[in-house]
């Protein structure tokens, strides 16, 4: 393989991975904007989405285009349930209490996933069962392209939702200033509920687009969570445009460092980038220091 075709190969797989990370990071950002907490169960949402998709497609034989929306809706329900049962009952919610609850929630969901789907990895058939595209020795799977399209569509839809719809604007208002939003007659509690549902649904999409051709196991949640977390921070917590840029950056950086530097130390190298950004520009590549100063977390 020539260097150029290697670069093409790495670019595509890096972008596909980055797409997954973007979705996880956007989910993290939505909850962060609504509540000021980091949701540690975000990776588990992705794992659940992936497993539900696997069950629907592989065990029940439901075609993927039908199973996909069902999975996303199911996860939205789980997200809402998580908020209603674990976050909403808090009498005096403080940031740290809520964060610990999401930690407990992630452990709990991991246990549930292990109970339902077992300890062994499960696989999902590729969505498009066609021979891969060959381009200058580089092999690009159709699924990779599909992932990129889905991620682009989801990001576009989110943009439309936050910019054009009343609910989306209300959510942005809550992120900006909770008290002011409350005074303007926005039901903040419902916005938080919606944030959890939306963010779980995004997690589901992330899990689903990650799985075809690969496999999923119950302990994968922290991996998704960590990557999403890294992307969200590098992009500037709560900053969605930053998350998209950082996701592409991290996805590419990860595959290129694994390919050209060292596959063994891929994890450490990728996370070293996070520390570097935190040390040099802690508000993220697009974050503003003034905004960061107002946040609790």
């Amino acid at each position: 393989m020539s260097l150029l075709s290697q670069i093409i190969q790495f670019t595509f797989s890096g972008l596909a991975n980055g797409g997954t990370y973007i979705l996880v990071a956007l989910g993290l950002n939505i909850i962060y904007n609504a509540t000021g907490i980091i949701n540690f169960a975000q990776g588990e949402f992705a794992v659940f989405g992936s497993f539900i998709m696997i069950t629907l497609c592989m065990a029940w034989g439901i075609p993927a285009p039908v199973a996909f929306p069902i999975t996303v809706l199911a996860l939205a329900g789980i997200g809402a349930l998580f908020h209603r049962t674990a976050i909403a009952p808090l009498k005096k919610p403080s940031v740290i209490t809520m964060v610990i609850i999401t930690i407990g929630g992630s452990i709990f969901m991991r246990g549930v996933a292990m109970l339902i789907w077992g300890k062994y990895p499960q696989r999902l058939d590729p969505f498009i069962d066609a021979p891969p595209i060959r381009f200058m020795d580089a092999i690009i799977k159709w699924d990779t392209l599909l992932v990129l399209v889905i991620v682009a569509l989801v990001v576009a839809a989110l943009y439309w939702f936050f910019e054009k719809t009343v609910t989306g604007k209300a959510m942005r208002a809550c992120a900006e200033n909770r008290e002011a939003a409350l005074l303007m007659g926005i039901n903040v509690d419902r916005i938080v509920l919606l944030s959890f549902a939306l963010s779980a649904a995004l997690g589901a999409v992330a899990g689903v687009v990650y799985t075809p051709g690969a496999s999923m196991e119950y302990g994968r949640g922290p991996y998704f969570g960590l990557r999403g977390f890294e992307v969200a921070i590098i992009g500037g917590l709560g900053n969605s445009v930053g998350a998209v840029l950082a996701g592409i950056l991290i996805g590419l950086f990860e595959t290129f460092s694994a390919g050209f530097l060292s596959p063994t130390y891929k994890e450490a190298i990728t996370l070293a980038l996070l520390l570097l950004v935190l040390f040099v520009k802690p508000s993220g590549i697009l974050g503003k220091a003034e905004v960061a100063r107002l946040k609790d977390f």
Partner: peptide, 9 residues
């Protein structure tokens, strides 16, 4: 594992 998470919550 599940109960451990539940207890924390």
């Amino acid at each position: 594992v599940l109960i451990y998470g539940l207890i924390i919550i």
